[in-house]
Amino acid sequence: MIVRFSAVCGLALWASCGLAADACRDPQTQAEMTYCAGEDYTLADRELNAVYARVRAAVPEAERERLRAAQLAWIKLRDLDCDLAAFGVRGGSIESMTITGCKTQHTNQRIEWLRSLLAESL
C-alpha cells in the first residue's frame, strides 16, 4: 500500500507540474509509463461506467440487483486477479503499472461483455 500511495502522490505532483501533457505519446521513464497506464485505466473505467449505466437502464427492473451484485463481484475478482498478476514484480518499480495495465485489460473485456448484453436486449 505504501508503494502505491507514494507512487500516486508522486504522479499527482508530476502531473500538476505540467510534465504529463506529452508523456504518453512516447513514454521513456518508468514514471511516465506508470502515469500513462493510469491514464489508460481512467479512460477504460469511465467507459465501463457509461456502458454499465446503459445496461442498467436496459435491463428489467427485476434484474437490476443481479446486475449490481454481478458488477461488484466482478470488480472484486478483477482487483484480486490483478494484484496476483503482479506477483513477479512485487515491491518493484513496475508493480503499480503492472496492476493498472491488468485492470485496464480486464475492464476493456468487461466493457465488451456488457455491450453484448445490450446487443442481446435489442
Rank of each mutant, 00 (worst) to 15 (best):
R64V: 11
A70I: 11
H106F: 08
C82G: 03
G88W: 06
R68L: 15
L72V: 15
F87E: 03
A86K: 02
E95H: 00
T100Y: 07
C82W: 07
H106M: 10
M97H: 09
R66G: 10
R68C: 12
A70L: 14
R68F: 15
H106Q: 09
I75K: 09
R68I: 14
L67T: 14
I75E: 09
A86L: 04
Q71F: 12
Q105C: 04
E95W: 01
R78N: 06
A69H: 10
T107I: 06
Q105I: 07
Q71N: 11
G92N: 05
W74E: 13
A86N: 03
K103V: 08
D79V: 08
I75C: 03
M97K: 12
A70H: 14
Q71I: 13
K76T: 15
L84A: 08
I75T: 11
K76P: 06
A86Q: 05
L67A: 13
A85G: 10
A86Y: 06
S96C: 03
E95F: 01
S93H: 06
K103Y: 09
I99K: 05
L72D: 12
I99Y: 03
E95L: 00
G91W: 00
I94Q: 01
E63R: 11
L72N: 13
A86F: 03
A85Q: 08
A73T: 13
K76H: 14
A85Y: 06
E65Y: 04
D83C: 00
D81N: 05
L80W: 04
V89C: 00
F87I: 03
Q71L: 11
L80G: 07
G101V: 06
T98S: 10
S96Y: 06
T107V: 07
G92F: 02
L77R: 12
R90T: 03
L84N: 05
A85R: 07
E65R: 06
I99A: 02
E95A: 01
C102G: 02
N108Y: 03
Q105W: 06
L67M: 12
D83I: 05
V89Y: 02
I94S: 01
V89K: 00
W74V: 13
C102E: 01
F87D: 03
E65K: 07
T107D: 04
A69T: 12
K103P: 04
F87C: 01
N108H: 08
A73W: 10
G88F: 07
I99G: 01
N108Q: 14
R90V: 02
C82E: 04
I75V: 13
G92A: 04
K76D: 15
L72W: 10
I99V: 11
R68Y: 14
Q71K: 12
A73S: 12
F87K: 02
L84Q: 05
D81R: 03
L80S: 09
L67S: 15
W74S: 14
G88H: 07
Q105G: 05
R66M: 11
R68V: 15
R68H: 15
E65C: 03
K103H: 10
I94Y: 02
V89P: 00
C82A: 04
K76R: 15
T98P: 07
L67P: 15
T104S: 08
E95N: 01
C82M: 05
G91E: 02
E63I: 05
I99C: 02
A69S: 11
F87M: 01
A85M: 05
Q71S: 13
N108M: 09
L67F: 15
K76W: 09
R66Y: 08
E63A: 11
G92I: 00
